[in-house]
Design a protein around this nucleic acid. Structure first.
Lengths: 220, 220
DNA sequence: TATATGCGGTACTGTGGAGTTTCGGATCTA
DNA sequence: TAGATCCGAAACTCCACAGTACCGCATATA
């Protein structure tokens, strides 16, 4: 993922000499690709702490215990590094494959409230916050943010709601898309503007005070 | 030239021995305070377009057709200018005094959907977006943003909900605070992350698809 | 009139960060 | 081995911007 641009560059250089598309006859020390994720993780840390404009390549390199040249050898600019870091964030994502399936909408929603998951989500929101002002200027970044941070969460909620519709727990004509966006939206607002934590209490209030009533269910 | 400078230096040195610590006797041309709001408005425009870090004092001065020195004579730094600009934004705010009172919660909420109001809110959200990464580092700015952008909107919704409770239209135990935050939160998310417009359709979907069902009401 | 300040405009200074280069050393291929 | 490329580290160039200083003019007081 990280070396895509450089690999393409190498291929292009090779092709100009009419050599094989992929056989650049590599020479010298090989690039240590185990450092890629370390640098990307460092970038995400700095991004969450200082935002895009506050982040410097030196900070990232220092945190990853790497040289600046090592960073620039892999990503040609700060913007590319950030886009790649965000795009590669899906890795430590919530398991979309084995979601909880408790038989009730509330059970499913509440089952997603885990300290680990919350902590993870909160950092992602911080990262997103540091990118807000860039999103409007870089379509590629907006795309990456959406795919890595926004959409996964929304997809989970959408799945739960559709399941509830299928088993007849809630009405089929409720606005699934808007409801799926509800908790991510309000969590973002709470973290980035109100500067309050997204804790269990808040999420339960959201589920029992808004989402369930909105689909005609009651909290136990 | 050099002679003049030395002469002035001599005069100043002489006066410093007789100068009083506080000499408020105003002299010379008066500061034109009608320029203050023009500069602040220019700052808000630039802020909405480029964000805090993208904004330069030259941009603000140029848009206000003012000199940079004129800006720095009134605000000692970029940060102070921005905080003041945000704080002084309440001016063109929605009239909190004469809110609509239609007799139903839905009527009140729908009555707030005005093209002028939407346009205004959208620009405020853009400004807020440009400040997100600063909010976490400057408590004063967080305060200003909350007072100028967030709280007014929330207060309106809170008023409508409390009214509805008082007249028995909705249950008294519903979560007013969370519900009042709902539309600002989702509107922020829509503008800043999804990059979609906060149009009448979206707001109606929010009212009829989420808020009203959540308090046990139905859309007509 | 003399002096002092504000005005828009322009040129300047100082700083910090993006991106480049260099260095000594390590690791690969031929 | 020899040459090429990587590594971390540090020095370097270049540029944009915050903030300052000055210019010529306008407008205030005394």
């Amino acid at each position: 993922m990280a070396d895509t641009a450089l690999a393409e560059k190498g291929v292009t250089a090779a092709m100009t000499q009419l050599d094989e598309p992929i056989a650049p006859a590599k020479l010298g020390r090989k690039r240590d690709h185990t450092r890629d994720p370390e640098i990307l993780d460092a970038a995400l840390d700095v991004l969450a702490e200082t935002g895009y404009d506050g982040m410097t390549i030196d900070m990232v390199a220092a945190r990853a215990k790497a040289g600046k040249a090592t960073v620039y050898r892999r990503w040609s600019s700060k913007a590319e590094l950030v886009v790649d870091a965000v795009a590669c964030m899906k890795r430590n994502d919530l398991d979309v494959e084995h979601l909880p399936d408790t038989g009730t909408l509330r059970g499913d929603l509440v089952a997603m409230i885990k300290p680990r998951s919350i902590e993870d989500a909160e950092k992602k929101l911080q990262i997103m916050g540091g990118l807000v002002s860039m999103i409007s200027r870089d379509p590629g970044l907006a795309e990456a943010v959406n795919a890595a941070i926004v959409e996964p969460r929304v997809a989970v909620n959408r799945t739960f709601l559709k399941r509830a519709i299928e088993r007849g727990e809630i009405a089929a004509d409720c606005d699934v898309e808007t409801l799926a966006l509800l908790s991510p939206s309000m969590a973002s607002y709470r973290v980035l503007i109100e500067q309050k934590p997204v804790d269990r209490e808040f999420l339960l209030a959201l589920i029992d005070g808004v989402i369930l009533p909105a689909v005609g269910l009651k909290a136990p």
